[in-house]
Write a protein that binds this DNA or RNA. Structure first.
Ligand SMILES: [Mn+2]
Ligand SMILES: [Mn+2]
Ligand SMILES: [Zn+2]
Ligand SMILES: [Zn+2]
Lengths: 141, 141
DNA sequence: TTTACACTTGCGAATAATTCTCATAATGAA
DNA sequence: TTCATTATGAGAATTATTCGCAAGTGTAAA
């Protein structure tokens, strides 16, 4: 059992503990999400999951993603133009640059910006629950 | 002819000059957009436009909004959850806070954040073409 | 291990926002 | 006014996502 498998084991135990059933489909999707180094959409996740567990449907992928999102395990990003993209919530908070030419998604984070966002909201009497910051860019040349 | 009407006259002249026909529907929608103090969606814009010019359809509202967006006259915002919302591009650049409880949209802007966004992108070899920054908030109490 | 039952799944239908098709109507340059 | 060109309305089509339901499966108790 590798470290990665162990992570999934812990995760599924936690889910089971929360009254969520650990099915073949869910385990397969979790491992796909764990291995993903990009920001795949539901169709792409279905394709990858089918390689591990052929008995999965798109509806189940969506349902499971919503479940994991509600559990705080995955994040959903609705970038301009296409369908929603997903990633595990394991890394620390970050925002995204979208390359308008290639479609590539690059991650970045700025504590300064995050702090300014909170200050601005506070000044207006708000607490920031979550936010969206996406920079649509082109390679400088 | 009021100042506001004059603005529309200039705008329509510019459009006509660009080979775009100035129809009753377009004039009506433009005046609705000019008067809007909020961030209405297409359905709401249709409702308001019908008061001025009953012969408008939702398809035309969408078509005209896309036209105006391409011309840089209106901005489209796809906030979480609902349909796209629109506003004229007359004010200076700003971003939005969305009150999660009331749905209210509040505007703000931060030159500091804008500058940081550009610096971060530049450091990664990108130029920011446009961006999205939305703070989903709750009233502090 | 078997059982019981609540939870999940796959399938296809339903939904919602937006775009498209195409026959008809309106605009504006001449 | 004329007339080629462009815009419109109505509803069908599209796309991403969710839903309903019958059938299958995971879990924990027996
Ligand atoms: Mn990411
Ligand atoms: Mn605004
Ligand atoms: Zn952030
Ligand atoms: Zn901004």
């Amino acid at each position: 059992m590798t470290l990665a498998d162990d992570k999934i084991a812990k995760l599924t135990a936690a889910l089971r503990n929360a009254g969520v059933r650990v099915t073949r489909q869910r385990i397969a999707l979790l491992s796909v999400l764990r291995d993903a180094k990009d920001h795949p959409d539901a169709e792409e996740l279905l394709k990858r999951t089918k390689l591990i567990e052929p008995a999965v449907s798109l509806a189940t992928v969506y349902r499971t993603l919503s479940l994991l999102e509600a559990a705080g395990v995955v994040h959903r990003h609705s970038f301009e133009g296409g369908s929603a993209r997903f990633e595990t919530a394991t890394k620390k908070h970050h925002d995204h640059i979208v390359d308008l030419d290639s479609g590539e998604v690059i991650e970045f984070n700025s504590d300064k910006i995050e702090q300014l966002q909170n200050e601005i909201a506070a000044q207006l009497g708000f607490d920031v629950i979550h936010h969206r910051m996406e920079l649509y860019c082109r390679k400088r040349r």
